[in-house]
Design a protein around this nucleic acid. Structure first.
Lengths: 185, 185
DNA sequence: GTCTATATAGAGATAGAC
DNA sequence: GTCTATCTCTATATAGAC
């Protein structure tokens, strides 16, 4: 694997685990196993790494959703895959929260120019969820339903990170699924 | 107003607007109008300021909830006051997110020892909401309902911060209130 | 492409005068 | 209680050898 991609991968993980502001070039370089000097051959500024990380996340997200679109037969099953994230990734979420929500929030506080790109990842989920609800026959309020499901995931992720209450997370996931099933008529 | 309180107030605001990690002693000192040197007469470390800020927030939260308990006649009205926060404070939330959720998440990523105290603020809301649901006659699942309302507020706050869609926020608040009203029998 | 060495700025933190 | 001056550490970033 190329050094550049290794840097982006390490930065991606560290930005998630420690936050963007906290993560230093030194720690990324150490994680990759290169010197700080070599680092600057690949990226001139910290902002450049962030942009590359956001591009990578955007691509990963699109690929994941495309995979779900193919693997799951019905739109409701696809939405369930999304909802299940908070259970599937509970370990990481308990420790570091939602990768999209926490980064978006941090960049908002920093007034960072790449904030819009981070919000764009939310947008990809939002659009994809909206598509599923359209296919379910809820064209009129597809986007509204998408936002509700997105908000659910963010709320549960934040509480999961705060309290680490797995029973609650599973209860709420089950509850949302039941509500969503009533949309499938 | 005493210098110490001024420092705590300024730090409280800056931690919210910029994040804990980003906020420097210099910027707090500048906001208060004192020198960095004087700063250390009142607080020896940055962690000490954070602890004071968390204590202040805990006190403010308890006072606010006590006020609501007194001002609103029914438990459902009290819960509505809480739910309305995302509308009342929409300006700040669009810019900086929820003060409790974003700080808790940041401290989790930093592995900060005061994380538990920040989660404690969530706990105060959780307990208070649980009390209201008990009074509403839902003792069996009062805490579960409290967590659902808390998760709602966090989800809406995160999306409000990301998209700034006030129509959605008002829609979702109205929706939750309708659901909650069906609990009042 | 990768390294070591270094420049520069800002952070947290201390000492001591007033 | 407040100030200036200073220490130390770490951060981003650059220069130049290999």
């Amino acid at each position: 694997m190329g050094t550049r991609k290794q840097i982006v991968d390490a930065a991606n993980r560290l930005f998630y685990q420690q936050g963007y502001e906290r993560t230093s070039f030194a720690s990324i370089a150490e994680a990759v196993g290169i010197s700080r000097g070599n680092f600057y051959y690949h990226f001139k500024t910290k902002d450049e790494i962030l942009e590359a990380v956001l591009q990578a996340r955007l691509g990963d997200t699109r690929a994941m959703l495309a995979g779900w679109t193919e693997a799951a037969a019905t739109p409701l099953e696809r939405v369930f895959r999304f909802v299940d994230i908070v259970v599937t990734n509970r370990g990481d979420i308990e420790l570091y929260g939602c990768p999209v929500g926490t980064l978006t929030s941090e960049l908002a506080k920093l007034g960072h120019p790449s904030r819009a790109q981070a919000v764009g990842i939310f947008g990809v989920f939002r659009d994809w969820l909206g598509e599923q609800f359209k296919e379910l026959g809820h064209s009129a309020n597809a986007d509204d339903l998408a936002l509700q499901v997105l908000a659910f995931s963010q709320g549960v992720a934040t509480l999961s990170n705060a309290f680490g209450d797995r029973d609650y997370v599973e209860r709420d996931v089950r509850r949302l699924k039941t509500r969503l099933m009533s949309l499938d008529t």
